[in-house]
């Protein structure tokens, strides 16, 4: 075993153990601030895995998008609504946890089974390394042009939707004060909530 392969192996082991333990922590720890920070650690380690695979552009994008934007946003959201509130205990939480644990373990066993029984074509195709950025750009403007353009519509719509959800409902407040238009749709649909739940 050469120095490079052993270094690679050691890096891989460290990174994957960080990912697995961090991900478990994200799910299991009760304090969401810890969870959010651990999530950042998981994202960073995944970026490390990309680097090991010689995909530096994807690694940089991972850090920028997931750690820089998504994770920071999650932390902001947690800090802004950090209300101390006693939550009502959910009935049968232990049984629910047991069942969801069983489902997850079953899925894991299935993945392991497939992993072991498959003849993997190792080693895979060689990584293209530094020219990856160019290649991604080429793909974006040739065979992935349609999804690339559609993504802009998706982002535009997500932005509009976020604004719609976040802003104060100016019109409806005006309407309520004028009292000219009946608001019965909303009122009634909240009224009969309790009745309908029993029928499920």
């Amino acid at each position: 075993m050469t120095i490079s392969t052993s270094t690679e192996l050691i890096c891989f082991l460290i990174l994957s153990s960080v990912i697995v333990s961090g991900a478990l922590g994200v799910v299991l720890i009760e304090n969401i601030v810890y969870s959010a920070f651990l999530l950042g650690g998981v994202f960073m380690s995944v970026a490390g895995l990309y680097l090991l695979l010689n995909a530096s552009f994807v690694a940089a994008a991972q850090v920028l998008v997931y750690v820089g934007a998504v994770n920071v946003l999650i932390l902001f959201a947690i800090m802004l609504v950090n209300k101390q509130e006693e939550l009502k205990p959910i009935k049968g939480l232990k049984i629910r946890r047991f069942f969801s644990g069983c489902v997850c373990a079953g899925l894991l066993a299935l993945l392991f089974r497939v992993d072991i029984t498959t003849n993997w074509a190792t080693p895979g195709p060689k990584a293209i390394g530094e020219i990856a950025t160019e290649r991604i750009g080429e793909h974006l403007f040739t065979d992935y042009l349609l999804p690339f353009e559609l993504a802009s519509v998706l982002l535009l719509m997500a932005m509009i939707g976020a604004i719609v959800l976040a802003r104060r409902d100016v019109i409806s407040i005006e309407l309520e004060s004028k009292d000219s238009i009946p608001q019965n749709i909303i009122k009634n649909s909240t009224d009969n909530v309790l009745l309908d739940q029993s029928s499920d």
């Binding site: 999804p147 998706l154 409902d169 909303i186 909240t190």
Partner: peptide, 22 residues
């Protein structure tokens, strides 16, 4: 991408009546 465009728009539409908790 088209699946996500459809889904994200559907989530937004489902929650369009903001004052209705349902």
């Amino acid at each position: 991408i088209s699946l996500e465009t459809l889904s994200v728009a559907s989530y937004l539409l489902a929650g369009y009546l903001k004052r209705d908790a349902k």
